[in-house]
Amino acid sequence: MYERKRRRPVSEINVVPYIDVMLVLLIIFMVTAPLVTQGVKVELPKASAEALSEDSKPPLIASVNADGEYFLNVGESQEEPLTAVDLATLVAAHLQKEPDTPVVVKGDGRVPYDNVVQLMVLLQRAGVPSVGLMTDSPE
Rank of each mutant, 00 (worst) to 15 (best):
E98I: 07
V104F: 08
M134G: 13
M120L: 14
P129M: 05
E98M: 04
G107C: 07
V103C: 03
V131I: 15
T83H: 02
E98N: 11
V91S: 10
L133K: 01
D108K: 06
A84W: 04
V85L: 14
L87F: 01
G107L: 04
L119T: 07
L87N: 00
E98F: 05
V111R: 11
A92V: 10
V117Q: 09
L123V: 08
G127L: 03
T135K: 08
Q118P: 12
D86V: 15
D86I: 14
L133N: 01
G109W: 12
V121N: 10
Q118C: 12
P102F: 00
V111M: 12
A92Y: 10
T83I: 01
P99W: 02
K106I: 05
T89I: 10
D136I: 08
D136C: 03
D100A: 05
L90K: 15
L90Q: 15
Q96N: 09
G132H: 06
A92T: 11
G132T: 02
T135E: 07
V117Y: 08
L119F: 03
A88L: 00
V117P: 03
V117K: 08
V121K: 13
V85Y: 15
D136Y: 09
V103T: 06
T135F: 11
V105F: 04
G127R: 03
V117R: 09
S130G: 15
R110E: 14
V91L: 12
L95G: 08
V91D: 11
V117A: 09
R125W: 04
N115H: 10
V111Q: 11
V131D: 04
K97Q: 04
L122P: 03
Y113Q: 07
V85I: 13
A84F: 03
G127A: 04
D86F: 12
Q124L: 06
D108H: 13
Y113W: 09
V121A: 12
Y113A: 07
E98Q: 11
N115G: 01
D108G: 06
G109T: 10
H94N: 12
A93V: 13
T101M: 00
H94F: 05
P112G: 04
V104E: 05
E98G: 01
V103K: 02
T83W: 01
P112Y: 02
L95E: 06
N115M: 07
P102T: 00
R125T: 12
A84D: 11
A88G: 00
Q124V: 07
